[in-house]
Computed example of a mutant assay.
Amino acid sequence: MSARWLEVAPGVFAGRHAELDQTIGLVVGTGRCLVVDSGTDEVHGADILAAVRERAAVPWTLVITHAHFDHFFGTAAFLPCPLWAHARCREVIEADGEEQRRDWAARYRSKGEPELARRLEAARLVPPTDVFTDRVRIDLGGRAVELIHPGLGHTDHDVVVHVPDAGVVFAGDLVEQGAPPQVGPDAEPAHWPSTMDNVLALGASVIVPGHGEPVDPAFVVAQRDELAR
């Protein structure tokens, strides 16, 4: 898979992937780097990891923003490494991962994309190794990042990645650019606008969505207002 990587701040990258218009994150420190989400399958994950190695000559940690298949089925390509997520994310991956695999493999086949179906079927399911429920700070060497559960929204376990020294937040699918936010059966739409307020309160000047191009706070305000309506 080819991708377009944008340096949205020094040592902070957004990897733009054509499949599902997905955006992967990378934050580079002097001792470690943090990868935000692992992609749709192990081939995709290996492609992401190759791009990470081009930009960071340090070990990596992985964080999964939420338990939808396109954000975690590439994880095995990154092993061994620490793997962070919200505690509920691990529960959902373990309970629903195989069902998501079956559903999306069938969907890819129905769309005439059997290779993507085969890759998803071959991917190993890897649950997170390290979990939290509110927030955790990770020292990357020369910079720290915060993993934060800002509230209920796209799921009940969304995690955002705050890079305070760069003024960047990776928002996962709490924010989408290029399409409306996806309000699925596991979403919490009544709480989503206030959760976006919590993301905005972090004061970042760049917000990187889980799908689409990086945006500014004004975009998030407009999307919050749309969800509230």
Rank of each mutant, 00 (worst) to 15 (best):
A3Y: 13
A9N: 10
G15V: 07
A18C: 04
A18W: 14
L20D: 11
Q22G: 08
G29P: 02
C33T: 03
C33K: 00
V35A: 03
S38K: 02
R53W: 10
R55Q: 09
I64Q: 09
H66R: 12
H71D: 04
F78D: 02
P80Y: 13
H86V: 06
R88H: 12
I93D: 02
Q100I: 06
A106L: 11
K111E: 12
P114M: 04
L116A: 13
L120D: 00
A123C: 05
L125F: 08
P127Q: 02
P127T: 01
R137Y: 05
L140A: 04
R143I: 06
A144E: 15
V145K: 03
E146L: 11
L152Y: 14
L152I: 03
H154P: 00
H154N: 10
V159D: 01
P164G: 05
D165T: 14
D165Q: 14
V168R: 01
F170L: 04
F170N: 02
A171C: 15
L174W: 10
V175H: 06
A179W: 11
V183N: 08
D186G: 10
E188A: 09
W192Q: 01
W192V: 01
M196Q: 13
D197P: 03
I207N: 01
G210T: 15
A218Y: 11
F219Y: 15
V220I: 10
R224P: 01
L227E: 00
